[in-house]
Amino acid sequence: MEHAYYLTHTENLQDIDLENFHRIYYGAEFCEYLLPRWEEIEKALDFCNEQKKTFSFLTPIVSAYGIDVLIPIFKRLNTYSTTHNRKVEVIVNDLGILSLLKEYSSLGKVIGRLLSKQRTDPRIVRYQDDFTESQLDTLSHSQFSKSFCAALKEYNIIRIELDNPFQGIADSFIQNGLGVSLYYPLVSIATTRLCLFNINETYHLPEIKECKKKSCKALGTFRLTHSTLPVPILLQGNAQLYENKSLPPELEKKGIDRLIHNIGIVT
């Protein structure tokens, strides 16, 4: 089993103990306005090199703004991958980015967990016993069917990634011939472009516009609680997540060969 460390910033890298990890995940998974500058990426790459770890770059859903930011990053990552003879992976959560990556042959293409479309409502677990077997089976599946993987064959994807919802994971992915990652312990529930940290000051409402303040970084994470929720929802910037501390049994039998430790997302 490969273990990956989910890096959220490049300050105080020397304090991070990577002894039990093989790989670093860095970038922005949920928000295009939080994509790091190249200087920060380079710092993370150098850190990876020093520590003899491999590197995966996280990307979110992007508008034209994000595409403009990502193109120079991909060019540099592609060059880095070739010159250092180290395969850099890009985690894709937007199929447009997969299309864009066709131009960068040295970068490994990984389909991120947001494209799995798994149901990750934490309330499901409360009523798990009352769902029919068939409903529960459907709730444990994802978009990553054989047809889905076949559709992406020409894009040379090497891996797919999953969330770890309370109700479990039904698929066995071994037959797909792709690597399978699992994010742990934070499960993604929802993402928005109407970000509650990008609020119009006059109307006190979120609006879809470029975010320059990045106030979510400064304000940290908020707990959302409600009587129907078994665990709090964690609101971090434009993403809602929850914590599931249990791992499904027999990960290898499901084809899962990488665990991404992502506790650092929330602060």
Binding site: D121, R123, I189, A190, L196, F197, I199, H204, A218, L219, G220, T221, F222, R223, L224, T225, H226, T228, L229, I233, L234, L235, V266, T267
Partner: peptide, 30 residues
């Protein structure tokens, strides 16, 4: 899930004035 009237609080300390104000704003929104 998106329409739940959540109670909102900062996750970790320090619960500064800005964070408490933001929590109140979020609670009002939901």
């Amino acid at each position: 899930g998106c329409r739940l009237p959540f109670d909102v609080s900062p996750l970790n300390l320090p619960a500064t004035r800005e964070r408490i104000q933001k929590a109140q704003e979020l609670e009002r929104y939901f």
